[in-house]
Design a protein around this nucleic acid. Structure first.
Lengths: 202, 202, 202, 202
DNA sequence: AATGAATGAGCTTTCATTCAT
DNA sequence: TATGAATGAAAGCTCATTCAT
């Protein structure tokens, strides 16, 4: 009973996420999800109050879990550089584990983001916290932590988009080293005082 | 009349894009667009064959224009580094000129991307071409040009996402220098011995 | 078991009637009733063949019982005037005993009325019989017995509606005397030839 | 255009009211109304925001109109007795003009009543005002004006219920005189020593 | 006997599109 | 040419009822 229900819910989420990732949330009908699970439309409403509830709960659950996964990975390292490297590897792994889920979480989420209770740890804040601490401790040069976070996330996520569009192939894991290197370079190549490279002129 | 029509079309596009960017394409109804332009629903169909036609033509037109704008900017420079820097500045400018349009083009586009005739120059290919050439000419170390393109685009686009979510503020132009520096650092910081891929894609 | 079942049925009826009275029959779902009784939805179907069956049997049972209660009260008196007075008191009592049930029977009944086997004694026919007899025996002036019944019932029922809407307060019993007086006055005040008739005595 | 729309709305209301009166609001589907008017279901939503909106606006419009009609009739008379008599005649006329509408307003209304802005004149308050004034001026003996109103309304409305159930026949107008006589008798036949309440409500 | 997941018909509502005026 | 009423297909959702456990 308990078990059966749990499996049903799992199957619904799986089908839904897969459809959301490939067609978008609005383009996925409740009927689609029902068909995919082998259930009737009405049966879905025993498990979720509404389509929106299904979207939101699925998003929230996995988004928080992803943040925890990243945080846990970071916790296993001590230096900022290693923390970032392992997080990048971990997020790549999460992507490869279930690309559809990952896409739903990161690219398809539909204004779900601002429904999160303020203060909830998210993948973004986990990255930001590590970067912020590194700046405080002098492991990274002084800089805008939010911008720095954006840069790292951009390096991580954009290859996944390319993967989705077929512009890149193979598991995202293959790119983790390259991205980690690029990320560290990007974070340490701060323009003003940084002698790392020729100053760009305005 | 010609003029009048042109203005009307322009206003329709503007309203539509603004709605698309803030609510998404599926969530924007033809009635919304009609209301926003002051036209009747039926009148829109004099200018576009369907809602889809409106979306597609608007996307295509501006997407190609953005590619041209970037290409033209790149053409004014000679070194790869300067080309990239100016493209980053230009794309930031394009964003600040019309954030809604930019968001529609880059983040909301709705499977419009794969409707482009293969070979059409897009912002992505413009970046890729510059990077590819730089690798060929030895201005950049040997590396997977597609991955390199992804890295640069990630550095450019993610801050805009942060801007949209309020995680960053101010015009994107303010970040252009920092991003250009980071991009060059990321492209030149290839991991010691392991080039991910040396053969550029066709 | 017998006892247990009886109690269950009673509780179901009570909950159902209360919901019917406050929300209407169509607006009350089987799930509502199940929740209210602490039973599962499926379990209700052990006691009733269908929702309609529940409505109908509940209605019929109590409607007939109310008629019997009124008839029995009338039987304790001899004069028409006293019969009416005691019936008015009794129906008021029935209302105060269980206002929800009363409302269901009299105001919410949902076309259940015309499902009664023709000839079944109902509160209406009980009143009518008394009035009819009184006219035959000369206790009341000649008049249309049906209209007379309507008048008396109107005097009795409308205050209950006012009670339900908060336009009157307190137990309906408080109004019984006044209503009885008014009823007798109304029945004896026949317009055409009737000389205003016998004055009502205290 | 204007005219066409007005006619459409009128036809919708007419069909809807007729169905509401015969089947009840909940039992009447939007499809029923569409079929009855010859429109598509979707077309109804150009004229009403929802089924509920259709019910409410129809109710409100005609309920207020009925109050006005009664008030206007009362205004043509001076004595309380005549005012009541003419109101009773008028309400009977309103019933006969459109029995379905009348039933919808008085018997089917579904909690619409408490959506009226407080202070809105309704048929009930119009009766109550006349009775209240008559008590103040000594035209009627001291008594609870609300109860008195209930009594009069009961006398007026119950025969209509009987009409609907076939227990009475013919136009309600036929009963107006009898009802008016009964009403006056009921209002003046206050029990000797026990006035239920002497202080009229605010 | 009891549960509650599942069904399936049918409900209200939305919306891109058409068309009479 | 412009309007907005009308269409009709499909969406999300509800709910009385059934049925495996």
């Amino acid at each position: 009973m308990q078990e059966r229900t749990k499996n049903t819910v799992r199957r619904i989420e799986q089908v839904a996420v897969s459809l959301f990732a490939s067609k978008g949330v609005a383009e996925t009908t409740v009927k689609d999800i029902a068909r995919g699970t082998g259930l009737s439309e009405g049966a879905l409403y025993r498990h979720y109050a509404s389509k929106d509830d299904l979207v939101w709960r699925t998003f929230q659950h996995h988004y928080v879990a992803l943040a925890a996964r990243l945080g846990s990975a970071a916790g296993r390292e001590t230096s900022a550089r290693d923390k970032l490297a392992v997080m990048i590897r971990e997020i790549g792994q999460a992507h490869d584990d279930d690309p559809a889920l990952f896409h739903f979480l990161v690219f398809v989420q539909h204004g779900q983001l601002n429904r999160l209770e303020p203060g909830t740890p998210t993948p973004v804040t986990v990255f930001r916290d590590v970067i912020d601490a590194a700046i405080s401790h002098g492991e990274l040069p002084a800089q805008d932590a939010d911008l720095a976070t954006a840069l790292v996330l951009g390096l991580v996520l954009q290859p996944m988009t390319f993967l989705a569009y077929g512009r890149l192939t193979g598991p995202q894991a293959a790119y983790a080293e390259r991205i980690a290197t690029a990320a560290w370079a990007a974070l340490t190549a701060v323009p003003p005082a940084a002698p790392v490279s020729e100053e760009p002129r305005s």
